[in-house]
Design a protein around this nucleic acid. Structure first.
Length: 578
RNA sequence: GCACCCGUAGCUCAGCUGGAUAGAGCGCUGCCCUCCGAAGGCAGAGGCCGCCCGUUCGAAUCGGGCCGGGUGCACCA
């Protein structure tokens, strides 16, 4: 019971109070209580906790908020943990809690340890998070980075709150771009056999990361694919090249600490006839028909001509126009295969989440339409769009030319600033807000760099532990009744952690963890800094072991919360600053 | 023309999925620290939350309509 956190406990208190009012006939039975909240008021001078119960329930109960508030307040005042209750404004019920509550929460942090903030609100519901899914045509570059980190942190977060999470990567190994990849490798293959191929032709991938793949093919097959028609070598070269690219991509992801459970292949999906099955099902329900494609609404391409294709009725689900599932050459469109892919994912999960780059925003509606059609609206399906990251160095945009494969790779960035800095920084903005990533600023050791400030707090806490040990202090068991008000304020903030986690999980917004840690670190530094002016207020007061024991205990638990938050973000907590 | 995302302090951004007097960092102003637990600290000024309606006891938050910025708009992936 010690491990039940404050807000969980008070939700139960609230329910019990309302039950007892029902039993006493002061509240009609069966009123929806979903809107009732118990949370800290924005202004701390109002108290520690506030509930809107009276305002929310007054109307359905056929009474007025003040009258109901009186009754609720009276019962809340009976709780041991509540020191004082007051009614304010339109019917807020404010509670001030006993100091003991904060001591108890601190102990809950200590006994829960790495699990403080964990919950089971996910109830084991299966969630499939698909993220990264970069085309297997080269190494990961910075454009993939943010989605990778956001997806990974979100998956970890959902696991932490009790979901059964699958991390999935969709390999786009069936489209035209992997044929281009295979042709690019063929050029390198001829080169490996001694031919002077000159510059890599336009339209092919010029990167020299293809050289080892080609050399391997040359070693294994000699010149048997030189001067032969594509049909003789293309499938083999494609398979080998994609496999090699995926090895590279996995290595890049590993640099960020990212590992997927499932790598799903589009080519295999098609070979297994999944798109045909989805089409058949939708045709049977008249959701796929053969029809004329509408002319594009934007700039008209030169070679546009009307054509009849199998179309999915995505307009019935809110899309702007129906979408082709096959091309005029008979191949599946990306959408046609993707539709079948999402159907497949929905067989093994209750909820689907896709993390996409914002440049794909235009295709969200059609895939949501397809999932709604194929699952009968059963599966919750969210597409999370991640906005672009502008790369800067000292405020100047980093030059990138897509030609010559001269992009900034993820591996380069990680080796320059480190995994933890990349991951934390990518989570310091809402996913749908644009972001700058300045190589100079993210490693700056100052207060306006949240990565630094949070790590610095944790390092200070670790250093306190070390110094207490080095000083050889004989410390008693901490007597938590000696916590001061400043210290209680720090606990109050730390106690929000489980709520922040819950909110971040429900809204699928892992960035909230980063902001919370920034606030908690700032509060810790402020507490630390009072010791600058007054040595009696330092954590370690050599001639007062009682106080030292309590403050050290508090400091250790703040460190625990910071560590738990960082762990969810996939960031290692530093024991000392470099 | 349509769709999606964004408009909150001078700048960069939070705002707990409807709560009370709107928050942080930077910048600015003032004081403190330079005898070290200071890769700083404390305090202050600064906002019709793009605009207008609506829903509600209550709106930065929800709905509708405008205005402004970004992105995307045949079978590409």
């Amino acid at each position: 019971d010690d491990q039940v956190t404050l807000y969980v406990r008070f939700a139960a208190h609230m329910a019990a109070v309302l039950d007892s009012l029902e039993a006493a006939g002061d509240l009609p039975a069966g009123i929806d209580r979903k809107a009732v909240t118990v949370e800290p008021p924005r202004d701390a001078s109002h108290g520690d906790l506030a509930t809107n119960a009276a305002m929310v329930l007054a109307k359905p109960a056929g009474t007025n908020p003040r009258a109901l508030a009186e009754k609720v307040a009276a019962r809340l005042a009976d709780l041991d943990e509540v020191a004082e209750v007051s009614i304010a404004g339109p019917g807020f019920i404010n509670m001030r809690l006993t100091p003991d509550v904060w001591a108890r929460e601190l102990e809950a942090i200590a006994s829960s340890g790495d699990s403080y903030g964990r919950s089971d609100i996910g109830k084991g519901v299966r969630v499939n998070v698909e993220y990264v899914s970069a085309n297997p045509t080269g190494p990961m570059h910075m454009g993939h980075c943010r989605g990778a980190v956001v997806g990974d942190a979100l998956a970890t977060l959902l696991e932490y709150v009790g979901h059964d999470v699958t991390r999935e990567y969709y390999i786009n190994d069936a489209g035209g771009q992997v044929d281009v990849l295979a042709r690019s490798v063929h050029v390198r293959y001829r080169e490996a056999l001694g031919e002077d191929v000159g510059n890599i032709p336009d339209g092919l991938y010029p990167g020299d990361y293809l050289v080892p793949v080609a050399q391997e093919l040359a070693r294994e097959f000699g010149d048997s694919f030189v001067g032969k028609p594509e049909s003789k070598w293309l499938p083999l070269f494609r398979t080998r090249a994609v496999a090699a690219m995926m090895v590279m991509i996995r290595a890049d992801l590993a640099l960020l600490g990212i590992h997927h459970d499932i790598f799903a292949s589009e080519a295999e999906l098609q070979a297994a006839g999944k798109p045909e099955a989805a089409e058949a099902e939708l045709r049977a329900r008249d959701l796929v028909y053969d029809g004329m494609l509408e002319a594009p609404k934007g700039e008209m391409p030169e070679d546009w001509e009307p054509v009849v294709l199998p179309l999915f009725r995505s307009t019935q689900f809110g899309d702007d126009q129906d979408r082709p599932i096959k091309k005029s050459n008979g191949n599946w469109t990306y959408f046609g295969a993707d539709m079948a892919y999402h159907y497949q994912k929905a067989q093994a999960a209750d909820q689907l989440i896709d993390i996409w780059g914002a440049d794909h925003a235009g295709t969200v509606k059609r895939i949501q339409a397809a999932v709604a059609a194929l699952t009968g609206g059963k599966a919750r399906f969210d597409v999370k769009l991640v906005q672009m990251v502008r790369l800067l160095r000292d405020g100047e945009p980093v030059k990138m030319s897509k030609r010559a494969g001269n992009f900034v790779t993820l591996a380069d960035v990680v080796s320059e600033v480190g995994k933890d800095v990349v991951r934390f920084t990518m989570l310091t903005r809402k996913a749908d807000a644009q972001m700058d990533f300045d190589f100079a600023k993210v490693v700056e050791a100052s207060k306006d760099n949240p990565v630094f400030y949070v790590q610095y707090a944790h390092a200070r806490i670790s250093s306190l532990e070390r110094r207490a040990q080095e000083a050889g202090l004989k410390l008693p068991q901490p007597d938590l009744s000696r916590l001061g008000t400043h210290e209680q304020d720090l606990i109050k903030l730390a106690a929000q952690f489980p709520r922040v986690i819950e909110g971040a999980a429900n809204t699928r917004e892992p960035h909230r963890i980063a902001f919370f840690l920034g606030d908690l670190a700032a509060a810790f530094h402020a507490w630390w800094n009072v010791g600058n002016d007054n040595p009696d207020l330092r954590v370690i007061v050599v001639n007062d072991p009682q106080v030292t024991a309590v403050r050290l205990f508090l400091s250790r638990q703040i460190g625990q919360v910071i560590r738990n938050g960082l762990a969810l973000m996939g960031v290692a907590a530093l024991l000392e600053m470099q």
